[in-house]
Amino acid sequence: MKFIKLMSLIIFGVSLFTVSANARDTIKIVGSSTVYPYATVVAERFGKSKFNTPIIESTGTGGGMKLFCAGVGTEHPDITNASRKIKNEEIALCAKNGVTDIIEITIGNDGLTLAHSLDAANANFNQEQLFLALAEKIPSNGKLIDNPYVKWSDIDSSLPNHKIEILIAPPTSGTRDAWNSLIMVKGCKASGAYKIWETEGENAKKKCSIVREDGGAIEAGENDTLIVQKLAEDPERFGYFGYSYLLANEDKIKASSIAGIQPSLEGIQDYSYPIARPLQFYVKKAHVGVVPGIKEFLKIFTSEDAMGPDGYLTDIGLVALDDVSADAVRSAAINLETLK
């Protein structure tokens, strides 16, 4: 029958298409949802040059690393965005799959922002108080007990007198990793729990980051816009995300102070704001020259117009690097310096 012949021809044609599509002329980027807004803005402007607009998938930092480290070759992504530094085990995974020369480009800084509704009274926490509010086990008389705190004021009378409720990022997110190392582990050390875990022979860093499961900590997914909405609805809720989300929603939410300091551009740039972190992306050196445009993409991303103090990335919330670090990053981008 003609019909069947036609169909088999079409299917054959489609499968041929697939084979030819494996040579790629568009940069592929995966990774952090915090870096996604910045990377997409740069990609869009980059696409106006003679190169194709890069394709960017928001997979979370952990998911991005997994895809990035899967191997060398055009079926794997060229760049992964990360809202934390690459971990040693990830470098090892990369090396196992042949991804050895990795270029690290720091694009700027971000401050983790603990925010709540504008209707709520201003709040101020230190890392220990946040740890005590969130952790599964807390120290009491030299022993670890299940977290007994229900209200913030149970922890310290200066804190708000209502239920503890914090929306937290999912475990695959780099924001959660940053929160763990900047808040949970530090608070754990300050409260004394860290030492107890160590004497018990446990991996203290890991144990300190375990959150309570009795409703005080609510896992809220990667969607930061949704978190903003939920915070605006209920003045007793807190949530955390990147600084850019605070800037875009200042008519709905405000930031709590951390150890008495409000997040600000200056404070995040010089790290006087205690929970600032660098944002970066990682590039596969083996793909430079194979996929066209990677070098030029690095150049435009690190340019003064993009990540400089007056650049278009700062307009949407990126905190620029200081001049010295920015110069170092630029030279790394031009010379394709790899991680040691």
Partner: peptide
């Protein structure tokens, strides 16, 4: 994030 309007299924 895809800016260019696709012109083929691949």
């Amino acid at each position: 994030f895809v800016v260019d309007v696709p012109s083929t299924p691949v």
